[in-house]
């Protein structure tokens, strides 16, 4: 019992000395992140309304993806009032959502809609997105109800 209260005391004083860190940690856990498996994500790739959808597959561990992100942010900002919706699909590892992905979203103030895809059976779902896709990211799909175009860094 004595030990317990002593430890508690120690924790309390630590919180007091680092109030800023504490605030940041709790706010990152509070950030909402929609996590889908592929079946749940698939409808977002096939919306048949009057909008144009820009779907970008990326991850914080993918340097070329991170390099591209500002352009998608600009696209979102410029065209969101013109019937264009940007959706950033993160392929970050689930155990890094709180440690990598969410802090990244905060740091870069990402405004586009972000969802996370958590589906280990990539050999099954990758061809469903695009039969010509090897799984290399970044990968982008631009579609509306009539047409669908695929983009990647090296056209693969």
């Amino acid at each position: 019992m004595v030990c317990f209260s002593a430890c508690k005391q120690g924790n309390d004083s630590k919180v007091e000395s680092e109030p800023i860190v504490k605030t940041e940690e709790s706010s990152i856990e509070e950030i909402e992140l929609n996590v889908y498996n592929f079946n749940e994500l698939e409808p977002l790739l096939n919306i048949k309304d009057d909008k144009i959808y820009v779907i970008n597959f990326w991850a914080t561990w993918c340097a070329p993806c991170v390099k591209e992100l500002p352009y998608f942010e600009t696209l979102n900002e410029t065209y969101k009032s013109k019937n264009v919706e940007v959706i950033l699909v993160s392929l970050d590892f689930p155990k890094q959502y709180d440690t990598k992905l969410k802090p990244f979203m905060v740091k870069h103030k990402l405004e586009s809609k972000i969802v996370a895809l958590d589906d280990v059976d990539s050999n099954t779902w990758i061809p469903k997105v695009d039969k010509n896709w090897s799984g290399a990211i970044p990968r982008t799909i631009i579609y509306n109800k009539r047409k669908r175009i695929y983009f990647s860094l090296f056209n693969r």
């Binding site: 597959f57 561990w61 340097a63 070329p64 990539s122 799984g135 290399a136």
Partner: peptide, 11 residues
């Protein structure tokens, strides 16, 4: 052949 998510290599 299997498909997996990976980072593009600069070529």
């Amino acid at each position: 052949e299997t498909k997996a998510i990976g980072c593009s290599i600069k070529v």
